[in-house]
Design a protein around this nucleic acid. Sequence first.
DNA 1: ATAATATACTAAACACCGTTTATTATATTT
DNA 2: AAATATAATAAACGGTGTTTAGTATATTAT
Lengths: 158, 158
Amino acid sequence: MGISDRKEREREEMRRRILDSAKKLFLDLGYEKTSVRGIAEDIEYSPATIYLYFKDKNDLLFALHQEAFVEFAKTFEKVATIADPFERLVALGREYLTFAFSNPELYELMFLLTAPMEALEIKEDVWEDGKNVYMALEALVAACQAEGHFKGADISEL
Amino acid sequence: MGISDRKEREREEMRRRILDSAKKLFLDLGYEKTSVRGIAEDIEYSPATIYLYFKDKNDLLFALHQEAFVEFAKTFEKVATIADPFERLVALGREYLTFAFSNPELYELMFLLTAPMEALEIKEDVWEDGKNVYMALEALVAACQAEGHFKGADISEL
DNA sequence: ATAATATACTAAACACCGTTTATTATATTT
DNA sequence: AAATATAATAAACGGTGTTTAGTATATTAT
């Protein structure tokens, strides 16, 4: 079925156009000062169209947040080959900083714009990718502890 | 002039009524979800009345923020008599925690609701009381350093 | 006491906002 | 060619912060 393939492709392109515009405006103006109407005008579609692709304004931030974390998760893969847990943690810290400085937009999206998201309603929603990253970090610290590092520390206090 | 004294007093009472209501609602619902109309309804006045006493919604948060910091500044006075800078800093830390736990509302107003204020427009505005508190802290740490504490540290990294 | 003036307040409007509904034009299938 | 599904939208709903124009009331001056 070539037609439904194209349809699916077009739908994905529309989603991208919306997300790219939302990302630009969120980073430029901040979440609160960005309006759905503004995004609609930017992509030259009616505001209602956005609601055919996303549940609401929160969903836009959520989708971008998720994408940013997927991107960030690759950082973990980069250091996965390092055998020693402590060295792996150090390398991860370095990669984290590298990521933050070379992808300032994504970084802002992930951490600086987290507050508005929590302040609104999402909070306990899926938020899967973020949790995965956190759990990976937790596991790594636990591995370090098993090797005798951070003797006095408690993971749950992070 | 007794009359203008009473007028001034009445004006101050109105300001208080507005601020008390705003404080209650900000803490209950958060800044964004609190509406000027809601505050107006709570005090049983028209929304327009609020604008006779405060420039805008931001100004309400700003006034409360300021009051909270004035209150917090008293913590500094409490420990001012301690001669040794380092002991003074330790005592201040203790007082800080005491303040946070015994005035949770003010504490939240000062620190947790700071983000919305910065996210909006105030940012580089007066913000005097907060700056004073910070400068007093900085001076105290400097005094500690003069006494040989925190040798490797740099104040500007706080 | 009465007229003029200043004060406190409000109803209504303005220009936005996020979101939903009903409708129309277009593309696909039958 | 007719029926159906899809995509987009115009218009509306109920909200927001804020401003404006107008109205009572209280104060001052005559």
